[in-house]
Design a protein around this nucleic acid. Structure first.
Length: 565
RNA sequence: GGACCAGUGGCCUAGUCUGGAUAGGGCGACGGCCUUCUAUCAUCUGGAAGGAGAGCCGUAGGUCGGGGGUUCGAAUCCCCCUUGGUCCA
């Protein structure tokens, strides 16, 4: 039942406004006690030559229809109260009958992330990236897209040569196995070592450059070393991916793609899309878009970063024929993607209008910016380990006699929930400072808080023992807290569509906090199992729906919903 | 030099796209309550100690970075300035 349309219809009969206009004007009051829908009367004031307050009062007297329990003029607003039982039935049965997200938005969508380098292990920034990436994939899938997780592995370049050179000079025959290190950390160790040694001996920088030239010439020895070290780096990083729940469907390696795109640039030049500068560089003129002139091919004909991005998108189009391409990349590359997308439009790529740079803010530490080469980073594996260890302590504190296996299971669920939620509760666009002491918490606005609400519901249902009846006397749900819960449940679908459409994963986290908080408030104030049958059945049905939505929401964030914790 | 992003109580943050009712949360502080479904002791119509806390409520705390403009109405839109971050040349 579409309440908005009904209300708009009733207002349209009494005013000169079109039904569609009214629907866009209708809003949801800031506080549920003010009603379910509100119509602001300001826009009618001029035409009717009355104050909005008078108009609201007048309309309140004229309008009435079934399913509306009450219409109230409050100041310049006309507030509509939907009959509680009708509202509860509409929303709850929709959830119970799985009628959410039936409107599928069919599209093929690619999401790229986290885009690591193979010279060092993953850090905080990659965690943020990876979690935003998977959540975006989950959101798009939820609204009906066919999604594919792609990645770019930056496996060539001067920084890669630096770890290689340090290993060649100081590593001898050492291997990750011999030194008992996770293989990507092993590679990272040599990257840090290079920086240290290069401070004493600046000639190493030159040597690294020479090594890159040799690599490009296909020098057999260098290539073999490169393959060996990259294999180590990738093996370790993919282990971390797994812990983070990342399932990359296809990874594109920069070493395969870095020379692509040149022919497309040359064709674009012939088509007059690009131009040749006096120094023979090929450029695209985007001054009218405030993006200046951007080099596409250097005077010597070599490609730049953006050239290979153009080449790679063609590879991806061959592989997936996507309608949409989302790049999850830090905000330091905002300019790069603005330029890239303009070029896609110039080249008239079919997906050009649906490219999106999901730009996220940098993660810093209280001491300042993270610097891999100085080793001042928060390592991804360490952080995961720490979170799980903390969760383990919390579990043990509460349940001393629980067996080890169960403790581990819960610790991992809860620890990862804390970690994931922390990164997903803020607007991706904002930079943030990662303060380990404050961040590793399980109280307040955290993943475990949401899980706790879920576990509480499971506990009640377990105690109840029987299956929950579906024939409900909805009028028994008359408490204010019940109304709040029902309203929130009714919003879930829109929140998901909005989060997916605007690429805002944090909307899901915020919603889950609201729902969990609202449930905890309800739990605290009202009992369920001790009530009379009518009320008990209705309340049980309500919390079953809350449970279902909590689980769906947590799943979008990749967080487990534990029955016990 | 130019461009982009951000600035909301002590700290962190939602709301800004799509203007609307008292700016919503969290952390920290102080005070209370409550108990993953109703604990324990005592006992009779009421009462009590201690411990514990992934929970709930209340209190204090705000020039929505500053200024101007548009509007019946601005955290939200426009302009200028400022601070921080980032990028381009």
């Amino acid at each position: 039942m579409d309440f908005k349309a009904k209300i708009a219809d009733a207002i349209a009969k009494e005013t000169t406004l079109e039904q569609d206009t009214i629907i866009t004007l209708l809003e949801i009051p800031p506080d549920p006690t003010m009603g379910d829908y509100a119509f602001p009367c300001f826009s009618l004031a001029k035409e009717m030559k009355k104050t909005p307050v008078a108009i609201a009062e007048e309309l309140a007297k004229k309008i009435s229809f079934k399913t509306i329990a009450k219409i109230e003029a409050k100041g310049p607003y006309l507030n509509f109260f939907i009959d509680k039982a009708v509202l509860a039935e509409t929303i709850l049965t929709k959830i119970q009958k799985k009628k959410l997200f039936v409107e599928k938005k069919k599209e093929i969508s690619l999401v790229e992330g986290p885009g690591p380098n193979t010279n060092k292990p993953l850090h905080l920034g990659h965690i943020r990236n990876g979690l935003i990436t998977t959540t975006t994939l989950n959101l798009l899938k939820k609204i009906g897209h066919e999604v594919h997780h792609v990645d770019i592995i930056n496996d060539r370049g001067i920084h890669i040569c630096k770890s290689m050179l340090a290993y060649q000079k100081f590593g001898k025959d050492d291997t990750p196995e011999k030194s008992r290190m996770k293989s990507d950390h092993f590679v990272g160790k040599y990257y840090v070592l290079f920086s240290q040694k290069a401070k004493e001996d600046p000639s190493l920088e030159e040597e690294a450059k020479k090594m890159l030239v040799k690599w490009e010439q296909g020098d057999k020895e260098i290539r073999a070393l490169w393959r060996k070290m990259n294999a180590w780096a990738c093996k370790g990083m993919f282990e971390t991916y797994k812990k983070l729940g990342l399932n990359v469907e296809k990874a594109y390696y920069e070493s395969n793609t870095y020379q692509l795109g040149k022919s497309i640039i040359m064709q674009g030049l012939r088509d007059g899309l690009f131009k040749e500068r006096d120094d023979n560089a090929i450029v695209v003129d985007l001054t009218d878009k405030k993006l200046d002139e951007k080099i596409l091919l250097r005077p010597d004909g070599t490609s730049v970063y953006i050239t290979q991005d153009i080449g790679m998108i063609n590879e991806r189009y061959k592989d997936f024929a996507m309608d949409r391409m989302v790049y999850v990349v830090a905000n330091e590359q905002n300019y790069h993607f603005n330029v890239l997308f303009e070029i896609f439009k110039l080249l008239k790529y079919p997906f050009a209008e649906k490219c999106y740079h999901l730009s996220y803010g940098m993660v810093a530490l209280p001491e300042g910016k993270m610097k891999s080469r100085e080793g001042t980073v928060v390592d991804a594996d360490d952080l995961i380990k720490d979170m799980i260890a903390l969760a383990r302590e919390e579990v043990k504190k509460r349940y001393a006699s629980l067996d080890e296996k169960e403790v581990e299971k819960r610790a991992e669920m809860i620890g990862m929930a804390g970690l994931r939620f922390f990164f997903l509760k803020y607007d991706a666009a904002k930079d943030f400072v990662f303060n380990p002491k404050e961040s590793l918490s399980f109280e307040g606005e955290t993943g475990p808080y949401v899980q706790y609400a879920y576990a509480r519901i499971c506990s009640i249902l377990e105690k109840h023992g029987k299956s929950v009846s579906e024939k409900i006397y909805y009028a028994s749900l008359k408490e204010e807290e019940e109304r709040n819960l029902i309203n929130l449940l009714g919003k879930f679908e829109n929140v998901v569509y909005s989060a997916a459409d605007h690429y805002k994963p944090h909307l899901i986290s915020r919603y889950l906090l609201d729902l969990a908080q609202s449930f905890n408030e309800y739990y605290h104030k009202h009992q369920i199992l001790k009530e009379e049958d009518d009320v008990k059945e209705a309340r049980l049905f309500l919390i079953v729906c809350v449970k279902d939505i909590l689980k769906q929401g947590l799943a979008l964030l990749g967080i487990d919903a534990p029955e016990k914790m």
